[in-house]
Design a protein around this nucleic acid. Structure first.
Lengths: 193, 193
DNA sequence: AGTGACTATTCCGATTAGGAACACTACTCT
DNA sequence: AGAGTAGTGTTCCTAATCGGAATAGTCACT
């Protein structure tokens, strides 16, 4: 019963194990602040597609209410949903992370452009990492107070800390690559910007 | 002229800047050993789709030869291809990496299963990381001899080293998470496997 | 001749990406 | 009051991508 649901479906199911009832729109917002760092920010279309599937399988309930003049559907995980999520966790292998790293892709073919351009790209990446670190640190802070063992945000805070470590490591790797690049022109030119 | 080619197209173009002429099959093989670590292993179908597009745009040449009894098409980058790749590198922003990290996704919802199951998953991840490290170290070794500044494998070796650092960092993050998890049951149970 | 492994390409269905479009609510500014 | 604009909530569309099956020929070994 659980084999034909894509991973993103389980991710949404997972989001529903924290809060209460959420609309598709709210799920998108939650996904954008947490899930985006280590999974994807699913498109709206995908979230609603997934919710319909989950609902068809009885893993979530869809409560249609008329709020003001328009219909609003809120979703909540069912007992079957809890069970399916748990079964997925317990019986299917996690699988290896897939990284789409445009900076590394471009570094790979660094020989087709000027070294200065590559340095610039790496510096920009560091700046973006710093921004991501700020955002994630904010998420991590928002979890404080309920992040002790046994409390609801225990696992999210572990993940947030992992993410912070990850971004920090990326910064170091970028600086290392920059240092290696500097060795290149050290002898013949003063390369700086 | 270069705006309607997806990133994977440029990745293939990039692979063609090293060797000489390659068949679609060979491109797939190269992608599987290098590109897969920090970009994707494109499906065969995708590679051939992309090659047709690149060929339509004049960025690669498609040489159809009759080798033995069957037709074999080899692809080579053209001057226009070099220029398009360079323009892409110089004028479009790299963009932030996208990570699809099933281990972190499952850690996030760790509260729906037993702590022991989560520990097990993390240990499996470390084992997979070790395997990936071995593979990548092999790639890195294969580049030796032509990885000095100015030599053809200079940039690939920078990327390989970044990748090694990355996997190593992931191992540390995983161990850190495991250590945090151990704090949980430290008081009441002897949790180990 | 037969089997299996490798090379090479095409085809197919489903999933995913990424927004645009639509519609309604609620707030502010003039 | 009316206009504008920001936010909420959902649907729809197109292209990209995944992942593997299907096809088909070559080569080596038995």
């Amino acid at each position: 019963m659980s084999q034909d649901i894509p991973v993103t479906g389980y991710a949404i199911l997972g989001l529903l194990t924290f809060g209460d009832e959420l609309t598709g729109y709210e799920i998108k917002q939650r996904a954008d602040v947490t899930l985006r760092f280590y999974w994807v920010s699913p498109a709206m279309s995908q979230i609603y597609t997934e919710l319909r599937r989950l609902s068809d399988h009885g893993l979530v309930t869809a409560d249609v209410r008329t709020d003001g003049g328009r219909e609003v559907t809120t979703y909540a995980i069912t007992g079957a949903g809890q069970a399916a999520l748990r079964e997925w966790m317990d019986t299917t292998p996690a699988g290896f992370p897939v990284l789409k790293h445009p900076v590394l892709l471009r570094l790979l073919v660094g020989h087709v452009t000027e070294p200065e351009r590559t340095r610039q790209m790496l510096h920009e990446y560091v700046a973006e990492l710093d921004r991501a670190l700020v955002d994630l640190a904010q998420v991590r802070e928002s979890l404080r107070g309920a992040d002790e063992p046994g409390q609801p945000f225990r696992f999210p805070s572990l993940v947030a800390e992992w993410g912070l470590d990850y971004f920090d490591a990326e910064r170091r790797h970028t600086h290392r690559a920059l240092a290696s690049l500097d060795e290149t022109g050290a002898g013949d030119t003063e390369a700086t910007a």
